[in-house]
């Protein structure tokens, strides 16, 4: 299912029936029909085309933001878990501070200071999830460090970099990837929420959160404009969640407690 969604999003530019940003005053606010499967919005733009293009944005945001959080969080977590001591203390206190902001607040704070833009949205959402990634990575690392094969590597005189990259990381990857796949859904939802309140994607982008926000005044007359992206988003998130659950079941049944 996720595969289909991703394929649809990637292929969106080629398969969409209409230009997602082209205005067509003659066909405004049309209900779903054979010509426009999901109807049109107040500027006569085809809702289906916009949703397909929006899918690319949403999924892209989800994966990119997660990648940001992994890139920052995994090295810090590995280091904190392996070295302990001052580094660990410092990194964890930093996480405490970041975690003391409710997730949206942190995004707000970052986006509030500069004009909104997509790449900022990605970084903001990514940073929100850095502390969680650090903590998970550290917890997993601590568990692996206590294993005897790490001691065996030290006994034969391996360098720290080798132990971190070749002995610890491959074993830590499974839980981190599983967690990251669920993180993607949070990122999609958070990104949409930020766009919804006007701090994320900007018009005329066809981001789903933005679409829902724009369609609110028309809820009485044209509910499909708001409902369609909502359903699309629900479908996407459920698909990613199922993927995550699948990964989790394959990799490690014990992982439940890390969530």
């Amino acid at each position: 299912m996720l595969g289909v969604l991703i394929a649809l999003s990637l292929l969106a530019p080629f398969i969409i029936p209409y230009d997602p940003v082209a205005l067509d005053i003659t066909s405004r606010l049309q209900p779903p029909s054979t010509a426009h499967w999901l109807g049109t919005d107040e500027y006569g733009r085809d809702v289906l085309s916009r949703i397909l293009m929006g899918g690319k944005l949403s999924l892209g945001l989800g994966f990119a933001a997660t990648a940001v959080s992994l890139l920052l969080g995994v090295p810090l977590g590995l280091w904190a878990g392996y070295r302990g001591g001052r580094y660990e203390e410092l990194i964890l206190r930093g996480c405490d501070v970041l975690m003391s902001f409710p997730p949206i607040m942190l995004g707000l704070l970052i986006l509030a200071v500069t004009p909104p833009a997509m790449w900022k949205l990605i970084i903001a959402v990514g940073i929100v999830y850095v502390p969680a990634t650090v903590r998970l990575t550290r917890a997993v690392t601590l568990e692996i460090v206590s294993e005897e094969f790490i001691l065996a590597a030290r006994v034969r005189g391996e360098r720290n970099s080798y132990i971190l990259l070749k002995e610890i990381l491959p074993n830590a990857m499974a839980p981190i990837v599983v967690e990251a796949s669920l993180r993607v859904t949070f990122a999609i939802l958070l990104g949409a929420a930020l766009s919804f309140i006007g701090l994320g994607a900007q018009p005329p982008s066809s981001d789903w959160g933005l679409m829902i926000s724009e369609a609110r005044p028309l809820l009485d007359s044209a509910p499909w404009i708001a409902l369609a992206p909502g359903f699309a988003m629900g479908l996407t998130v459920i698909a990613v969640n199922l993927l995550g659950d699948g990964l989790r079941a394959t990799f490690d049944p014990k992982l439940r407690r890390h969530n």
């Binding site: 959160g209 829902i212 969640n241």
Partner: peptide
């Protein structure tokens, strides 16, 4: 519940 955003 966890899949659909609250604003929706």
């Amino acid at each position: 519940g966890i899949s659909v955003p609250e604003f929706f």
